[in-house]
Simulated scan of single mutants.
Amino acid sequence: MKLGTTLFLKMAVILIGIPVLALCIFLVPGIANFATELYPDMAYLKYLVLIDLYASAIPFYFALYQA
């Protein structure tokens, strides 16, 4: 019983983390490019968006690790 429950919880944590990782890889650069297209005179905005979104993923993965 314990092994099944532990395995289920591990798989649940992995299945929660994979979509967020995919979003960080594929969607975040697109959002940063979109922000640059909206405000072309502020080219540094792309890097600020990237830093902010990736920095918000770090506590998420830390919480998943703690779970």
Rank of each mutant, 00 (worst) to 15 (best):
Met1Thr: 12
Met1Pro: 08
Met1Arg: 10
Lys2Thr: 11
Lys2Tyr: 07
Lys2Asn: 10
Lys2Ser: 11
Lys2Asp: 12
Leu3Gln: 09
Leu3Trp: 05
Gly4Ala: 11
Gly4Pro: 04
Gly4Asp: 10
Thr5Gln: 14
Thr6Ile: 11
Thr6Pro: 03
Leu7Glu: 07
Leu7Thr: 11
Leu7Tyr: 06
Leu7Trp: 06
Phe8Leu: 15
Phe8Ser: 13
Lys10Met: 10
Met11Ser: 13
Met11Trp: 08
Ala12Gly: 07
Ala12Cys: 08
Val13Ala: 13
Val13Phe: 05
Val13Gln: 08
Ile14Cys: 10
Ile14His: 07
Ile14Phe: 15
Leu15Phe: 12
Ile16Cys: 13
Ile16His: 07
Ile16Gln: 08
Gly17Val: 01
Gly17Asp: 01
Gly17Tyr: 02
Ile18Gln: 03
Ile18Asn: 01
Ile18Cys: 04
Ile18Thr: 07
Pro19His: 06
Pro19Ile: 01
Val20Gly: 02
Val20Leu: 13
Leu21Gly: 02
Leu21Asn: 01
Leu21Val: 04
Ala22Arg: 06
Ala22Gly: 09
Ala22Phe: 11
Ala22Cys: 10
Leu23His: 09
Leu23Pro: 00
Cys24Trp: 03
Cys24Asn: 14
Ile25Asn: 00
Ile25Val: 15
Ile25Gly: 00
Ile25Gln: 00
Phe26His: 03
Phe26Gly: 01
Phe26Leu: 05
Val28Glu: 00
Pro29Trp: 03
Gly30His: 08
Ile31Ala: 08
Ile31Trp: 10
Ala32Pro: 00
Asn33Met: 09
Asn33Val: 05
Phe34Ser: 07
Phe34Cys: 03
Phe34Arg: 08
Ala35Cys: 11
Ala35Met: 13
Ala35Leu: 04
Thr36Gln: 14
Thr36Trp: 07
Thr36Ala: 15
Glu37Tyr: 07
Leu38Glu: 06
Leu38Ile: 13
Pro40Tyr: 06
Pro40Cys: 06
Pro40His: 06
Pro40Leu: 04
Asp41Ile: 09
Asp41Arg: 12
Asp41His: 13
Met42Glu: 10
Ala43Arg: 11
Tyr44Asp: 06
Tyr44Ala: 11
Tyr44Trp: 13
Tyr44Gln: 10
Leu45Tyr: 04
Leu45Val: 05
Leu45Ile: 14
Leu45Lys: 04
Leu45Arg: 07
Lys46Ser: 08
Lys46Arg: 15
Lys46His: 14
Tyr47Asn: 14
Tyr47Gly: 13
Tyr47Asp: 15
Leu48Ser: 08
Leu48Met: 08
Leu48Pro: 00
Leu48Lys: 06
Val49Gly: 02
Val49Phe: 09
Val49Asn: 03
Leu50Trp: 05
Leu50Ala: 02
Asp52Glu: 05
Asp52Arg: 06
Leu53Gly: 00
Leu53Asp: 00
Leu53Ile: 04
Tyr54Leu: 05
Ala55Lys: 08
Ala55Thr: 12
Ala55Cys: 11
Ser56Thr: 15
Ser56Ala: 15
Ala57Arg: 03
Ala57Val: 02
Ile58Gly: 00
Ile58Trp: 04
Pro59Gln: 02
Pro59Met: 02
Phe60Thr: 02
Phe60Asp: 01
Phe60Trp: 04
Tyr61His: 12
Phe62Trp: 10
Phe62Ala: 14
Ala63Cys: 10
Ala63Phe: 13
Leu64Ile: 12
Gln66Met: 12
Ala67Phe: 14
